[in-house]
Design a protein around this nucleic acid. Structure first.
Lengths: 242, 242
DNA sequence: CGAGACTTTGACCGTAGTCAATTTATGTGG
DNA sequence: CCACATAAATTGACTACGGTCAAAGTCTCG
């Protein structure tokens, strides 16, 4: 479904290089350009754009990141998660009063401006995909708002899990209804506007009720349709399904 | 400060027409074009874009509107308020799963695409102002997220009042520290993710503590600096002030 | 003056927060 | 491979912030 997913193909990128033997000189140069444009970050590190450059555009190749703000108080609010295939944009003076982008796992990031793809039309395809992704992201921000503003703890957790599942599925990172989440419960709490303890209890309850299975960083959603109903979750893309 | 405020000048628009006598034929035509592009809406009405048109861009000339979503459940979440001078954008199939724009008061709206302004450079100025406004709006969405995700009821109310005050001030709708809010407490509740009753109690408390004065649709913020501290409010524009 | 919308208040409840301690991974060096 | 150190998850006891229900009081406007 996602043109971006097709264009970038995150953690399977290495597959591309199995075909090295048949590459032309130009293609080899492209591959070099590609690798030059890949940056790596350690968990917890804040992604910043080079000073004086104004903005930095990128795409997540592998790993998870998030956009968040920290109050002088210490309280944190996570606005959104950045998954493999997601584009992002960092502005220079956006630390306080804005939003910071922070790596949640080891992260591979590609600078978007880098013309690693051949042909104008390929680049345009990517640009269109990025644009599309931007629109979806805007919608997800509204979802997030509804979650923390109007849903109960149970609903919030389910709603977020369903969103993550859908998004990961779009980039081929879901097997069945199971996927990996490299998130600690504190992260969950800060994203959903709840306390760590209450997140823990809510997860426990959902597990006990047989709605989800949690096992060493993997989640399985049982009966997604039903869960979507419980959490007022509306899958992305098609609107109008009450 | 705001180029947009200067270009549009909301509830003072009528002043322009006092100068009718000296207008050239071209200018008269511009004025006609201007009025043709003004739409009016009654409170509670949802703004929609003409079917098949995809999107509708506009600017609020007078009155308040909001962007919100309603759950099948009946619960409502307001994402943002649209004030005089604010640009907005409505997409076609955005009712459910997206965000609806609803008039909160009698509303005067100008279609943005309409070339009521003379000269390419004037239109470009407006376009730049709109762009700028879009960026600020994005930041405000993050503020809203922090409000409903991480602030207490007291902080939420203050934080929102401070934001509204700053925004209204930018378009000349604040006298001293007093301004009009045409919002019922239910609206406040739906914006801040609280119940109507609790909003009422919080306002009462803030009044009792001498932080705010509420009188028939007008609010006065006493010691804004101090309030900003209490609510972790960060005025727009200048970042970096912890 | 009456109808309806909005605000205010009281009583009570429940969801979620806080504090603190324990258990369970995870990981690292010997 | 084990011992220890650290981060993460889990649990209990208690608190409190905010929600719900219901009724009464105000305000507006035709």
């Amino acid at each position: 479904m996602s043109a971006l997913a097709q264009a970038v193909r995150p953690s399977t990128a290495s597959v591309t290089f199995n075909a090295f033997g048949g590459l032309q000189a130009l293609q080899v140069e492209q591959v070099r350009a590609f690798w030059r444009s890949v940056e790596r970050f350690e968990p917890g590190v804040q992604l910043e754009c080079a000073p004086g450059q104004g903005v930095k555009r990128g795409v997540i190749l592998s790993g998870w990141a998030c956009e968040m703000r920290i109050l002088p108080d210490g309280r944190r609010q996570i606005f959104s998660f950045l998954l493999p295939g997601d584009p992002f944009l960092i502005e220079e003076h956006a630390d306080l009063g804005g939003r910071g982008v922070v790596a949640l796992t080891r992260l591979e990031v590609m600078d978007w401006a880098n013309p690693f793809l051949a042909g104008a039309e390929a680049r345009e395809t990517l640009a269109r995909a990025m644009n599309e992704a931007g629109v979806q992201k805007q919608d997800r921000l509204m979802d997030q708002m509804v979650r923390i503003g109007r849903l109960t703890a149970r609903e919030r957790v389910l709603h977020l899990l369903l969103e993550l599942c859908d998004r990961l599925e779009a980039v081929g990172l879901v097997r069945g209804d199971t996927f990996r989440i490299p998130l600690t419960q504190v992260i969950f709490a800060d994203a959903l506007g709840l306390s760590l303890v209450h997140i823990n209890r809510t997860l426990k309850q959902l597990r006990r009720e047989g709605h989800i299975v949690l096992k060493s960083g993997s989640v399985t959603l049982l009966r997604r349709e039903k869960l979507a109903g419980l959490a007022f979750y509306h899958p992305p893309g098609m609107a109008g399904v009450a």
